[in-house]
């Protein structure tokens, strides 16, 4: 009896502290053509998703020949934001029409489940005045559950200049396209030199969205052609993806 009360009390204060704390969060990532990032940000903001960050990337070529002629690389923009789960579906609904993601090559929006976040985020993103909108939207959308295939996100971090080789391997195993982001390795120890700076090898992150069933063949192919044992020094892993929008089965 006593025990139960204590438990109940704990739970109550926990709930009182902030109802939002129990709400799960997702990471939303939009990949759109350079210059359309502000549209995505506006959409996110209209849903009270304030923590948005952008970085630049570029779409990979869809064939080797086109890549040689410099014709198939498009400048992309990645916009990241955190969103409470129940708002995700409303954002996706609106993204469909506002961002024209249905059109081939119009862009991609997907969400990644999170396992934990800073406790300082929910008070900003979840407020009583927002929750009304959430609920009304929720009712409308309760019926339309996830449809289509399940996707995963493969991330490969490799030395600069090997994107073509990695994409070639991935395409041969069934991938359609990807996005690259420039990066730099930090804390590389043995580069100290007389000028007192450290040489930092430039890296590239290649993100490929792939149907779950194609994940293993593609990852195996990349590992074979561009894994750690090769000069690409590719490190690869995959991340689960929940909702996805804008990925045409035939064309990206």
């Amino acid at each position: 009896m006593n025990n139960k009360d204590v438990l109940k009390g704990e739970k109550d204060t926990g709930l009182k502290k902030n109802l939002a704390a129990v709400e799960r969060f997702k990471l939303l990532i939009a990949i759109v053509d350079r210059g359309r990032g502000t549209k995505v940000v506006n959409l996110f903001r209209s849903h009270h998703l304030h923590f948005d960050f952008a970085c630049l990337g570029s779409g990979t070529a869809s064939s080797r020949i086109l890549s040689y002629f410099g014709l198939d690389e498009t400048a992309k923009e990645l916009v990241w934001t955190l969103s409470p789960c129940r708002r995700v579906r409303a954002v996706f609904q609106e993204a469909k029409t506002q961002l024209k993601l249905q059109k081939p090559g119009g862009g991609i929006l997907f969400s990644v489940p999170l396992s934990a976040i800073s406790g300082q985020i929910p008070p900003v993103l979840i407020k009583p005045e927002y929750s009304k909108e959430d609920e009304s939207v929720d009712e409308n959308l309760n019926g339309s559950q996830k449809k289509g295939r399940a996707y995963e996100l493969i991330l490969t971090i490799a030395n600069r200049g090997f994107t073509d080789r990695i994409m070639e391997a991935a395409r041969n195993a069934g991938a359609k396209g990807g996005t690259t982001i420039s990066a730099r390795r930090v804390g590389y120890e043995d580069g100290e030199n007389p000028f007192g700076f450290t040489l930092q090898p430039e890296k590239e992150i290649i993100a490929i969205l792939i149907p779950k069933e194609d994940k293993l063949p593609v990852m195996r192919a990349i590992n074979r052609e561009a894994g750690l044992k090769t000069e690409c020094r590719g490190i690869l892993f995959s991340v689960p993806v929940d909702d996805i929008l804008g990925l045409q089965e035939e064309d990206i």
């Binding site: 704390a21 799960r24 789960c85 934990a116 800073s118 406790g119 996830k146 929940d242």
Partner: peptide
């Protein structure tokens, strides 16, 4: 907003939440 978040500058771990109060989670998509 800053004053609101002051008391709970901790990390919300969804995995432990899930076991603690299953069924209380508004959205259970995943």
């Amino acid at each position: 907003e800053a004053s609101l978040m002051a008391p709970e500058d901790d990390i919300i771990d969804f995995d432990s939440l899930e076991t603690a109060n299953l069924g209380n989670i508004p959205n259970s998509g995943e």
